[in-house]
Nucleic acid binder design. Sequence first.
DNA 1: TTGAAAGCGCTACCAA
DNA 2: TTGGTAGCGCTTTCAA
Lengths: 301, 301
Amino acid sequence: MSGYSKSTVSRAISGNGYVSEDAKKKILRLANELDYVTNAIAQDLAKGTNHQIGLVLPHVKHPFFKQILEGVLEKSFDTHFKIVILPSNYDEALEIKYLEQFRKKAFEAMIFTSTQVSEERLMTYQKYGPLVLCHKPAHADIPAIYTERRLGYEAAFAWMKMQGVKSIGFLFARAKSPTTSVTISAYEKIFGQKVRKEQMLTGAISDEDGYALAPEVGQFDGIFANSDNIAAGLWLWYEERGLKKPLIVGQEKLLAGQLLNLPTVDNHYMELGQEAFQLAISKEVKQVSIDSNFYPSRPTT
Amino acid sequence: MSGYSKSTVSRAISGNGYVSEDAKKKILRLANELDYVTNAIAQDLAKGTNHQIGLVLPHVKHPFFKQILEGVLEKSFDTHFKIVILPSNYDEALEIKYLEQFRKKAFEAMIFTSTQVSEERLMTYQKYGPLVLCHKPAHADIPAIYTERRLGYEAAFAWMKMQGVKSIGFLFARAKSPTTSVTISAYEKIFGQKVRKEQMLTGAISDEDGYALAPEVGQFDGIFANSDNIAAGLWLWYEERGLKKPLIVGQEKLLAGQLLNLPTVDNHYMELGQEAFQLAISKEVKQVSIDSNFYPSRPTT
DNA sequence: TTGAAAGCGCTACCAA
DNA sequence: TTGGTAGCGCTTTCAA
C-alpha cells in the first residue's frame, strides 16, 4: 500500500463510501500498475456469503438431468448466482457429504434432482438454507417442484390399451424411485391389474441401455420406456434385426422419438429446472407441480 | 467455546496436530451438541484456495458443449475439485468478467469450451493459474486440448464426392469459429474449389434449427451439418414433406444419426472434456489433440 | 499436550 | 473525506 489506508483503498476499489476523486484516481491507477485486485474468497468471508448454489445430479446422461440442468443454468444466467455441479451417482454418502458442505456454508442453497438420503434427514438441514427437491416430497414443509406425471401416464396407458396392447414391459433407470411408483400406480389403475416383477426392467439410462435391454422384452407387445432415447435404442435393436416391434412409448418429446414418430409423454423437465432455480433463490417453502402431457404418434400418411 | 482454546478446538476438529484423546472427545461431543461446524469460506481463505474450477460454456444445447461437460464432470468426480458452470452465451464481456473473477481467485483453474476473447488477452491471465482451451490455439504456450478434425472432415468430403455430390451446403452454429475454418479448408482441399457465401448457413445449434433451416438448402445435393441432431432436424423436414433428401452428413455419432443411418464424423468430445479437466488440474502447459473419425452410413440391407 | 498470537484479505463501523 | 479498529472464522507456527 502506498499512501492511503486500508479502508480508503477498500472504498476506492469497491465503490462503497466516500472517497475524494483525487484519492480514488491515485489508488485505482496504482492498483492497476501493481496488478492488484481484491481477493474473492476474502470478500466472501467478510460478507458471509458466496452466492453459489449447489446442484446435485446423479449424472448427466439421462434427459431428466440434462434438461433440469439446462433450465437451471438458463435462469441463473441473469443473476449473480453461480451453479456448482455436485455429481452424486445415486450415492447417499456423497449426498450427505454435500449436505455437510452446505451446512458449512459452502453453498447458499441446494437443489436435489434426485435423493437417496431420506426426507427426514434432509429436513434436518433445512435450517441452514433453502433446499429444493425435484420430486414430490412426502412432507409438506420442504420446497419442491415436480412434474405431476399421473395424468400423462394414465393417458399413455389408456392409449396403449386402446391400441390393443395386452402385456406391457417397463424400462426404468432404477428399481425403486419416484418414477417407478407413479408409473406402476398409473398402470394398475388403467389396466386393473398388478404389475408383475418380470415386467420391470431396470438399468435404462441412455439409449445404449435401451438397445442392450431389447433382447429381454420379447414377451411384451407394449413397452413403456423412461425416455424417447431409450425407446429409440430399443427400436433400433428391432429394426436392425427386421423383427416386428412392440408398441413403444417414450418420454420427454425428444428428437429421437420425433424421428421415429413414437408416442411420448412430455414431462417438461426444462421448465422444472427453471422453477427449481427460482424456488432456491426465493427462499419460499412451497411446492409447485407441473402437469405432464401425452402425445400419441402422428397418424402415418 | 467452552474450555479449550481456539487452536485446540481447530486441531481437534480438523484432525491436524496433537490433541489428547480426552480433549478431543470433549470438544467433538460439545461441537455436536452445539451443532457447530467449521465455516468453509473461512477455511478457504485461511488455506488460500477453494478447489473450484470454472467451466465456461456458451450454452448446453449443442452436443459439443454437452459432451464436454459430461467428460469434465466424470473426471472431476473422484477429485476434491468442484465444477462451477459459467454460462457465457458467446459474450466477450461476460468472458472477461469471469476472467476477472479468476484473477480474484474465485477459481483455481478455468476451462474455456469456446472463446470470444482474443488469445492475447487470455494469455495475460495465465499468470493467475491454469487456463485451458478446447480448440487449437494459435500460440503454443497456452494449454489446450482439441479435436484435430481435418482428417475426419476430409474423409467425409471425399466420401461425399465419391457419392457424386456436386454442391454442398454447410450448417454452422456461427459464421466465424474454429469449426467453420477447418470445415471450409477441408472442403476446399477435397473439392478443389472455394466455398461460396451461399453455401454457408448459420444459426444451427439444436435439431430445431436444422429443421428451420431446411427450406433454405434446396439447391444443394449434399449437406454437411455440425451435428447429427441438426442433420436429423433437417432430415425430418424433408421426410414430413415426402421430398427427396440430399446426402446428409452429421457429426458426433449421436443416437439420432444412428437411427437414420446417417454418415457421421465422430469428434470425441466427451473424451475432450475428460482431458480438459486433467489438463486443468495438472498445471502442465501442453497441447493435446485427438483425431476425429468418419463413419460412412451402413450399407442398407 | 495446549495456548497465544499472527495471518489469510477483506468489509464496515465509528471517530476524527 | 480519511484512518483506526474490530470483526469475518479459520489455520498454523512457536513457545510454554
